[in-house]
């Protein structure tokens, strides 16, 4: 057990987490520190390309196996089913309207790619390997949750927009999904040779760019918490911490059943535990405009994201270690 606390303590003083905390504190303290929108988008494009490309290179080195297809299927199943659990929890814990609960549930069925990237960095720091194709699983888990949440709304008579061809296109061709899958394919096709060519940009500076991006995430999260704190009840905050643990547990079970490596199980837990704040919020604004965006964004970015980043990831690593028969 002391290992969990040591890992959590090490994680808390990493430059990545401290950058996020700096942004959070600066925003809560009303500092004028800010990132222009174009720079924030540029950083996210860099990170998505780098993580997708490196995942593709990893798969090209180790080859494909049936586990990839099974992991993709498991990811889609998790993304479809987690919103149902989140919706039930929200209705029981926070007594939200059907529309608000479904919109939040969609966020928790989808994934946060930055939490995934932070977990990948922490695993690499600990020398724990993970399957490269988990990046593809991350991309596969982005969209199904949206479909699931819209189905819940229609089934519960909450209104909302039916899935039109236009909405499908917007969801499936979302910029982050296109970039993640596209860079994964490029990495897969070009392999180690490709990495040698462009690694100078996408390997060495990666953690530094991640620090800057998390500084921005901290600023956005802090501003959201400051301006929308009155919309978050204690019950909702509790949901923002309970739901990732529920998701991580589901990810742990799926990871073990699939026979993933210890690092792969951790990443499956992280994907299931994280909540979207890029792809799903935009889709929900189009499909469920009556839902309050302040609730879902503040909860996913202001509560669940910091929880996963600081305590969640070390906790999931410890759980995966114990499940693998290790001693923590």
């Amino acid at each position: 057990m002391p290992g969990i606390f040591q890992l959590a303590a090490d994680n808390l003083v990493s430059p990545i987490i401290l950058s996020f905390l700096l942004g959070l504190i600066a925003a809560l303290g009303r500092s004028d520190l800010n990132f222009p929108e174009a720079i924030a988008k540029g950083l996210s494009i860099y990170l998505l390309f780098a993580i997708g490309f490196k995942g593709g290179v990893s798969v090209s080195g180790h080859g494909l196996d049936g586990k990839l297809v099974a992991a993709l299927g498991a990811g889609v199943m998790l993304s479809l089913s987690l919103p149902v659990a989140a919706f039930a929890l929200l209705r029981a814990m926070a007594r939200l309207s059907v529309t608000d609960a479904a919109a939040i549930a969609a966020h928790y069925g989808s994934i946060s790619i930055v939490t995934f990237v932070a977990a990948t960095s922490l695993l690499a720091g600990q020398g724990i390997a993970a399957e490269g194709y988990m990046v593809a699983v991350a991309a596969a888990m982005e969209a199904p949750a949206i479909v699931s949440a819209l189905w819940i709304v229609v089934a519960r008579g909450g209104g909302g927009k039916r899935m039109s061809a236009d909405l499908w296109r917007e969801i499936l061709l979302n910029g982050s999904i296109v970039l993640l899958i596209g860079s994964f394919v490029i990495g897969w096709m070009t392999g180690q040779g490709g990495l040698n060519e462009i690694g100078g940009l996408f390997v060495e500076p990666f953690k530094g760019v991640l620090c800057l991006f998390l500084l921005d995430m901290g600023l956005v999260a802090g501003r959201g918490l400051r301006t929308n704190r009155s919309t978050l009840s204690l019950r909702l905050v509790a949901f923002g911490i309970v739901m990732p643990v529920v998701g991580a547990l589901a990810g742990l079970i799926f990871g073990i059943v699939l026979g993933l490596s210890q690092g792969g199980v951790v990443l499956m837990m992280v994907l299931s535990a994280s909540a979207s704040y890029i792809a799903v919020p935009a889709a929900m604004r189009v499909a469920l405009p009556e839902a309050n965006p302040a609730l879902s964004l503040t909860l996913s970015l202001g509560v669940t994201f910091p929880f996963n980043l600081t305590l969640g990831i070390p906790l999931y690593m410890a759980a995966a270690e114990i499940a693998a028969g290790g001693n923590f």
Partner: peptide
Amino acid sequence: RSGEWSREGQVGRASG
């Protein structure tokens, strides 16, 4: 009516 919003630091389009 829906509160404050800002483009600063936003990655997605949901808040803009």
